[in-house]
Design a protein around this nucleic acid. Structure first.
Length: 210
DNA sequence: GCGACAG
DNA sequence: ATCTTGTCGC
């Protein structure tokens, strides 16, 4: 495993590969949700589910292992990426979009987990975080309301209300997609505060912990 | 020195 | 992340 310094250098090296634009023909049919569940003593289970246009689960994969990197804010990917990438590779149904549990470019070095996963898997990806990494303005209370996440004068994501009167989620581009499409996908996937993709990946991971 | 800090 | 059931409300 890399040291903290090496991990930061790796992020800077890969960051230029991020594309915040979708392919002209981008129309996701199969969307994947990814999450990692934690057990005792650094045991981890990377879980991924694939949903079709009707939000039916059409594929699942899990990979259990041991966390090789500590939790360090800003270097989250080095903890969760190995098991998640391995799980994605086990899928039978190829996803058109990865929905990650964490930040994309809304990150101090513009290279959160969603970017890292998108670049390494060479797939469109978005980050949906439950907590922002910086300050933000609260959006209106209606589903679909949003405010821009601004960092250093740049719009890096959006605080998005996914249901009426629930706490917003924090959406940012991971790779090969734009922010408008990213938010539209999140809204399409939400029946409750969090996208169905992450909810199902979360329960799949927990289930596999035993 | 104290608090914050994706999961 | 995790420790944790039922319960009140829409």
């Amino acid at each position: 495993m890399p040291t903290v310094e090496e991990a930061v250098a790796e992020q800077e090296r890969l960051r230029p590969l991020v594309r915040a634009v979708a392919d002209p023909d981008f129309t996701p049919r199969f969307v994947a949700g990814l999450d990692v569940a934690y057990g005792d003593d650094d045991r981890v289970v990377g879980a991924v589910v694939v949903l079709d246009a009707d939000l039916r689960t059409v594929d699942e994969a899990v990979v259990s292992g041991v966390a090789e990197f500590p939790y360090v804010s800003g270097l989250f990917a080095f903890r969760e990426l190995p098991s998640l990438l391995a799980a994605v590779k086990k899928l039978t149904v190829a996803p058109d979009l990865l929905v990650c549990d964490g930040q994309g470019v809304a990150h101090p070095r513009r290279f959160g987990l969603a970017c890292h996963l998108g670049v390494l898997a060479d797939l469109p990806s978005i980050g949906v975080a439950k907590t922002p990494m910086g300050p933000y303005d609260l959006p209106g209370t209606a589903k679909g309301s949003c405010t821009d996440l601004v960092d250093d004068g740049e719009v890096v994501g959006r605080a998005l209300r996914t249901c009426d009167d629930v706490k917003p989620v924090f959406v940012s581009v991971g790779h090969r997609i734009d922010l408008d499409r990213a938010c539209a996908e999140v809204l399409r996937l939400c029946r409750t505060r969090l996208p169905e993709t992450t909810r199902r990946a979360d329960s799949l991971g927990r289930r596999h912990l035993r």
